[in-house]
């Protein structure tokens, strides 16, 4: 067991160059073939780029991407460890092939999907999103993945479906944290149907153009950028369309502190701490937390008639 040393990880300037390669090739098909091409690119050491000239990539607000080492080594994934810095080492041998995802419940076409099939069936696109943890830190992550709605369209929710319920793998041998009775395993998360169909909501399969690492939720995880990080459930094995609001792991653990919606909101505080500010990983100062994590324009219509203080 050892943590991933920065030397084992492809330097960031290579990702940057890889990304430039990707954007120049964006006219060509993206997806699995694309990712294979990218990994070939990274094998040829690119010495023309100055190593100091890193992280020129920014999100739409002009904030730099968080470096890959940080993303890969600072993880909240209690199934491996409650210590964010130990998760990466604990997750090293996590078996992600074969991996099947059952999609069912109130749908017309329930199905069992192999992860490889999802990767080829749906075009993988890059989405650069801010990730705000309820604990008060944040990152900017260049995800690879596809909108959840593509999969939902495929299975066709019935008229009665109102929520989507997600479940992480339950395997206490591989996920030793699940032996801890403090939480009720497996990890469960949920979205309202309109949230699930929103274009920003994706199922992620990669980061920085690379296949997702186990500590980041491989092989398939949810990413809902306007909600606190814990909503973005990792290592999904089941997706069900349901008519009742799912009860999530965090709602069970502390019902007065973690609600179903968990939208990033500087005006709605956790009962024991304020959510006014956050620390971006890689920065020392604090920055203001933005309403809906900066995605208010895209998502506030989802909550126009709701009391967000009450529906926290």
């Amino acid at each position: 067991m050892q943590t991933i040393r920065s030397s084992e990880i492809t330097p960031e300037h290579i990702y940057v160059s890889r990304r430039k390669f990707m954007s120049s090739a964006s006219k060509i098909a993206v997806g699995a073939a694309m990712m294979a091409a990218c990994s070939r690119q990274s094998d040829s050491t690119d010495t023309s780029l100055d190593a100091g000239n890193i992280s020129t990539d920014v999100d739409e607000l002009g904030d730099s991407w968080t470096n890959y080492t940080s993303i890969a080594n600072y993880n909240n994934f209690y199934e491996f460890s409650v210590n964010k810095e130990r998760v990466a080492a604990m997750a090293q041998d996590f078996k992600i092939t074969p991996w099947e995802i059952d999609v069912g419940g109130l749908v017309k076409n329930p199905g069992r999907y192999q992860i490889e099939n999802l990767l080829t069936k749906f075009d993988q696109e890059e989405r650069v999103y801010r990730l705000r943890c309820v604990e008060g830190w944040s990152m900017v992550v260049p995800w690879m993945g596809f909108p959840l709605k593509r999969l939902l369209d495929e299975v066709e929710p019935t008229m009665n479906a109102r929520y989507v319920r997600f479940e992480t793998l339950y395997d206490p041998v591989q996920l030793p944290g699940q032996n801890d009775g403090w939480y009720s395993w497996p990890y469960v998360e949920g979205l309202r149907l309109d949230e699930a169909f929103h274009d920003l909501t994706i199922l992620a399969t990669g980061i920085y153009g690379r296949t997702l690492l186990p500590q980041n939720g491989a092989p398939l995880r949810l990413v809902v950028p306007w909600k606190y990080g814990f909503k973005s459930i990792k290592s999904i094995v089941r997706i069900d369309l349901v008519d009742q609001q799912p009860i999530t792991l965090w709602m069970k653990a502390a019902p007065n502190e973690y609600g179903f919606y968990a939208n990033v909101n500087p005006n709605v505080h956790h009962p024991r701490w304020s959510q006014d500010t956050e620390r971006r990983i890689g920065e020392l100062g604090r920055r203001d937390t933005l309403l809906f994590n900066g995605y208010a324009e895209q998502v506030d219509h989802l909550y126009s008639n709701m009391d967000l203080q009450h529906n926290f």
């Binding site: 024991r272 701490w273 304020s274 006014d276 500010t277 604090r286």
Partner: peptide, 18 residues
């Protein structure tokens, strides 16, 4: 953590009972 920012501290301290 708060860079001696008194205003920010005043805002946060009372929202964080701990």
């Amino acid at each position: 953590d708060y860079g001696f920012d008194i205003e920010l501290l005043q805002l946060s301290v009372f929202k964080k009972p701990y």
